[in-house]
Nucleic acid binder design. Sequence first.
DNA 1: AATGAATGAGGCTTCATTCAT
DNA 2: TATGAATGAAGCCTCATTCAT
Lengths: 201, 201, 201, 201
Amino acid sequence: MEILATDTEQLIKETAKRVFFAEGKLHATTQEIADAAGINRASIHYYFRSRQKLFDTVFIEATTEMRSKIQDIMEGGFSFRERTEKFIETFIEKSLKHPYLEMFIATEINTNPAIQLQLSKPSKEKENLKKLEDDIKNAVAEGRMKPITPHHFIISMMSLCSFPFLGRDIIKNAFSINDEEYKKLIAERKDVIIKLLFLDA
Amino acid sequence: MEILATDTEQLIKETAKRVFFAEGKLHATTQEIADAAGINRASIHYYFRSRQKLFDTVFIEATTEMRSKIQDIMEGGFSFRERTEKFIETFIEKSLKHPYLEMFIATEINTNPAIQLQLSKPSKEKENLKKLEDDIKNAVAEGRMKPITPHHFIISMMSLCSFPFLGRDIIKNAFSINDEEYKKLIAERKDVIIKLLFLDA
Amino acid sequence: MEILATDTEQLIKETAKRVFFAEGKLHATTQEIADAAGINRASIHYYFRSRQKLFDTVFIEATTEMRSKIQDIMEGGFSFRERTEKFIETFIEKSLKHPYLEMFIATEINTNPAIQLQLSKPSKEKENLKKLEDDIKNAVAEGRMKPITPHHFIISMMSLCSFPFLGRDIIKNAFSINDEEYKKLIAERKDVIIKLLFLDA
Amino acid sequence: MEILATDTEQLIKETAKRVFFAEGKLHATTQEIADAAGINRASIHYYFRSRQKLFDTVFIEATTEMRSKIQDIMEGGFSFRERTEKFIETFIEKSLKHPYLEMFIATEINTNPAIQLQLSKPSKEKENLKKLEDDIKNAVAEGRMKPITPHHFIISMMSLCSFPFLGRDIIKNAFSINDEEYKKLIAERKDVIIKLLFLDA
DNA sequence: AATGAATGAGGCTTCATTCAT
DNA sequence: TATGAATGAAGCCTCATTCAT
């Protein structure tokens, strides 16, 4: 009995994640989510009090996993190049699962002050940036990169990773390509990005 | 005085563009727009019949200008490098004005089949891609680029241009920077992008 | 110039009568009437102050004519039978012009206390009823009618006249007949009614 | 208690029937109906989705009962005279409950193609008319009626039944009578009608 | 634990009406 | 005289939320 209760809560969360972040229906109503989950609309309020609470919950769950993976990579003792490659892999992998999560963050972060998106713990922010700056300097000295500020490096990397998902429909529309061709482009993406960021790739 | 008649219509459109695409309130109500414009909500319906019609109108106006500028660049007899630089300039300039326009397109293009976003006229699509392929080949032969497919080149270029705006709040949030510092980053952006795309930059 | 003004006022009234009472659009908006008349909506208010005033005006005009004709018949020195026949003729003739006028009266007389529909001047009501009672008595005595109270006689006569118009669409629908066949029925109506009311018809 | 669930739905329907068809407020707003029922306006939408759906529902319920009763009479093996009397009784009885239902049909049947009002099943229409024609012929031969076509007979019968209700306020107004006197007239009505339709009544 | 019923708040739209010209 | 512009009032509908069970 008790397990069923948890099951329903889990079912609602998973359905919500799918509807919100996989299908891109960021403004789905509680009724739509209830229908998709095959449960009563009131159950959503029973478990989560409000639509917003449900949304916050699944949003945090969906981003936390990503953030901790990134943190593992950053602090895993990898080389600069390895770290970059793993970041790109992780980012693409996660985006394949929740293509619209990034989009939500981009859209709502300005209206919803509750959303905080730190790439690294605030305490380590300065430190991490400094480390990246050194890494870049070394790479430049070795002819593996052109000079670039840490901020621009991160922005460029995130740009190259994010946009293919953020702009999925723009791309499909602009190139008149189907799902299969789009997936092929995504699969090739990591190599393209690395080649753009590193001269010796 | 005589212009006043059209003035309200114009005022509504400009306010709507600002609210929707500059302030990012893509789901602003007619009341919010009316308040922002200092007019009665019914006036919006007087001029545009429905919220959707208003939205469509300002959306088309906002994108058409951009699209025609891009087309001018593509067919202006410029060199590959010049074309790329001008595209980036134009894109950044437009995005400074309507940072959330791109976001709306990204969000809604899949649910609103009316939105068509061709980079080039369908009739010239193949031709333009072929031309780009040749340009890239030449640049590679001359050591000014690494090999890259036309599709990936365009996606990368758009990524590097678009994301700083799409993800404005993500960036500001992640780097804990203020508006001024953000603007500085944007101002430096064109050079950064060109340096990533071209070896000889 | 001044004549034009009157022309517009007249045009509005005639259009309103047509739309309201001939076409049966009893809830036509001022815009619909303005469109039908080919004039500006505000003109209606310029001439009539409000939709209601326009309605009242055309309603009174449309009924007054009818009422005065009926009064002429009642006081014209005709025999009972002649009076009855003339009443029926007049009623049918008028209803052909404004088939929905009766319907409006029926619908709105209870919510609109302004609408007063006297068959005869209040002062003469009693007198007229008494006269009718005598007429019926005589006709019964002569074997030309069955006994009937004046009220029931009037109600029956009005029923037989009115309903074919009030229920025009019901009749057309129930009998699956077209306009032509309907008109034929109406044309035969007077004789049918007289035959039902008078034994010697 | 358990019935309560359906009770509100039933209450809304009954209130709507009363407001629409008994009180004649054919254009009553959802708020008026909600107030009359003592419930929240949103409940109407909860149960019926839209004002139109509610209206259609109660309209169909109100007419279906009547229509099936009429059909029972038509196919009940009664004599012509019995059938006619029963029709009149049923019609008057129903009209006492919903005096404005007929009026709505008359008003809206031409604008609302969904409203179909067959007196008999389309398949039996011809047959029933033929039967009525024979009945009339027999009655004429026996001196109980004057010659009349089936269409005119039906129209006359419906006229005499319907109008006292359609024109209730016209009658009360024209005769300056009160509710009691009006009811008395209605109570006498059946005999009056039969006397007009049949010579031997 | 779960749900059907009911509601308050808020959105879009229409319409008669007013106002300035 | 006539009208385009603008508005307030009021209507319908949807949605998240609450409540009783």
